[in-house]
Design a protein around this nucleic acid. Sequence first.
RNA 1: GCGGCAGUAGUCUAGCUUGGUUAGGACACGAGCUUGCCAAGCUCGCGGCGCGGGUUCGAAUCCCGCCUGCCGCACCA
Length: 495
Amino acid sequence: MPQKHEEMMELAKRRGFIWPSFEIYGGVAGFYDFGPLGALLKNKIIQKWREYYVIKEGFFEIDSPNVMPEEVLKASGHVNHFVDAMVECQKCGAAFRVVDLSREQTGKDIEGMPKEEMNQFVKKHRVRCPNCSGELGKIFDFNAMFRTAIGPGSQRVGYLRPETAQGIFIDFKRLQRHARGKLPFGVVQIGKGYRNEISPRQGIIRLREFTMAEAEVFFDPDDSHHPKFSELAGEQLRLWLAGDQQHGKEKLTEVMAGEAVKQKLVCNELMAYYLALTKRFLLDLGIPGEAIRFREQTPGQRAHYSSETWDAEVSTERFGWVEVAGLAYRTDYDLSRHAQFSKEDLTIFSAGKNKKVICHVVEPSYGIDRPLYCMLEHSYVSEKKRKYLRLKKEFAPIEVGVFPLLNRDRMPEKAREVHEALRAGGLMAEYDDSGSIGRRYARADEIGTPYCVTIDHQTLEDDTVTIRNRDDTSQVRVGISGLANTIIDLIRGCS
RNA sequence: GCGGCAGUAGUCUAGCUUGGUUAGGACACGAGCUUGCCAAGCUCGCGGCGCGGGUUCGAAUCCCGCCUGCCGCACCA
């Protein structure tokens, strides 16, 4: 029932999680704003990711520009692979890369040829639609990167970055010095990425500007061990192997991370480790285990820089299996290319081998917006009278609501004091005295607020309040002193 | 991007076929009253025809363009 998606999105829009950008000007497809609650939720996801990669893995976090000069993306291969001359069949409407079609049908490589010559080439060699043999139309540029000009006079071409990773590779020399030359080491970046999608639909799942969190793990190609692999080697992984996909089989292979390496289902220990870590992360967000799988990209699906890629996918009602993270073995592709194009030495000295090597890279790359959608969809509960977000408590944007039972007898004043105390205690607390108490509980439930504190007559007598639980509406009475810590413990303790 | 359908307050919706007073309702929201714990009630209030152009004495209604959304195709390195 896709109705759930509609209801949940209506709620998300109405209550301030996400809404289409630029609405008063009619909107622009592929862009969404995060409202007050959405921004809180998104920041909590990012903070959780930092906990995993920066704190626990000990990776360095950097923050580099969104605008990149053309040279960088030429070296990375994105200029060639992202900006294509396309042609559309006039009969069936299918679109193709001109260069690919020409190579297939004439054996000639016309990469880099000016557009006018390409048009003539296609005409002269009678390149046709491979599907229906229809006649092809005019060649047009398909530019998946947003292009801009750096500085006045449009002298220097720049692009909005299609991934944050390149900012890391470029800084390799300084970063390896920061790591004092020890391998493996990891560097992360959290920020915006941009892709000028042809027709973005699927709401927040396919955005033209999106937030990503990427980690680049640099290692000696002869030593792909992870120092903490034993901690995750027993983690069960559900793999959809490329071979099975190519044979049209839906079969999932259930295997422990350690076994996956031994059986060579996964290329190396680092990759297996981050697959397992990704699973842990998604579970931590509140995504159920049965809604998580790892799909191995088939050779044709892989990006130009990758020799093995796994997509972490989450099952959704509305969009089916959605890729929320991609784990790519980028080999030495990026560092080699940047070394070649920049003429800089991007090798590192390997003490073990007593010589210089070019690092290989395993890259866990996460979208932030997509898991956020998955969390909303998976947490949306619609019961007879009650509709609410059963978000994991630590991710709820508003952590506690504070209500006076009645708007008299000094209850509002007392409630405001409690509200202030909770805020002072570090909690995202919201005060509400409008409407009946039941209505206020419902309002709080709707946005996933896990606890509500109610000030009643008894509070005025003995300084106790009730704490009401979102999930089962049960209430307990506790003392006001130390209330903030009581609630923090509740949020941490339960899920 | 191509084809089909659609767009009315924050949300849902009546009106559109056959152009004609101040575009009606519900929920939500705000103020007040009320209210001893799960969307109760009463009074008052806020708020709308996606944007632009055309036809007409007169357009939410008819026509055109754009934007956005949904469905199908293509695309998603």
